[in-house]
Design a protein around this nucleic acid. Structure first.
Lengths: 152, 152
DNA sequence: CTCTCGACTGGACAAGTTGCTCAACGTGTC
DNA sequence: GACACGTTGAGCAACTTGTCCAGTCGAGAG
């Protein structure tokens, strides 16, 4: 990761659909260099994809909630997570330290619909209890770019 | 959102760098149709961007933690969030219901480095207390695609 | 029933871009 | 000095993009 890599990523973050040739013009380097850097960023795992970013809100799921689950000792975390993965409204899940055992982000169509989603999560084998916290407003939307500046 | 939109998004999610012409061939529709659908998906807000997805891990920030903050009544949530936004390691933040007032996701270079990040967060004016939960392992990586199937 | 509208098709065109290859040039390492 | 490595700038055929247009089709309005 040098300055060129950082500038390149920033450029693509700002204008994702620029081509390699256009990027090389903007950065003042040869086209082959941009191509090589891009390839390297992808194969080194820094850039994991170029997929379209979807808005759950625009898809009709405006409610976000965070669930902290307690898992019964007999059930494996992985087995529970595999079941959670089959629920579309579960957007991500992590095992965690502290009071709970598993943390997950869910979305729903409405406050009322959230009940249905929570019921689905709680009905997963091994889930003993769920404590729910609702997200009210987004203060800092998900971002990674500032980390670039902190990279050396 | 009809079947064509869903298929189109799935295609781009699977192979983000396919061109419009190639996409139209795969879906068996005219090029103009793909172009029009894509434009509509973007302007309707379903697709919010095409940016490169960066891995905090690969950038040197392998540790993820979730902080629940209590904010003093005199401080506005928004003012606190504005300060949080200046800390690169704060990847997202929401106001929430329940015991805490603000929830945020942070990353750090190591367990030891997490202390530095937490100190930075707690030193923000108005933050009274932070309770920290560390993410141990990713069970379900962030995803939105399954929601597509649940869309009608 | 007929008209109109919007969405889709398939074709065309010039201009631009991609993937690929090549020889040549610095720079830092052994 | 010799070597590897990343970079440069150039060239080429094949392909894609943006932008037109005329024609088709189905749904809803009158």
């Amino acid at each position: 990761m040098d300055d060129l890599d950082r500038t390149l990523i920033s450029l693509y973050a700002a204008e994702p659909r620029v081509g390699v040739l256009e990027a090389s013009r903007r950065l003042g380097v040869a086209r082959g260099t941009v191509q090589a850097r891009l390839d390297r960023l992808v194969s080194s795992g820094v850039v994991t994809g170029w997929g379209p970013d979807l808005s759950p809100e625009a898809l009709g799921f405006p409610v976000t909630a965070f669930l902290t689950l307690e898992i019964s000792q007999s059930a494996g975390h992985v087995a529970v997570a595999d079941h959670l993965a089959t629920i579309p409204e579960v957007l991500e899940a992590y095992t965690i330290t502290g009071a709970g055992d598993l943390w997950c982000r869910v979305v729903s169509r409405s406050n009322a619909d959230l009940q249905r989603v929570i019921d689905q999560v709680v009905s997963v084998d091994g889930v003993q209890r769920a404590s729910t916290v609702m997200a009210l407003a987004t203060q800092v939307p998900y971002r990674v770019l500032p980390l670039l500046e902190a990279t050396d």
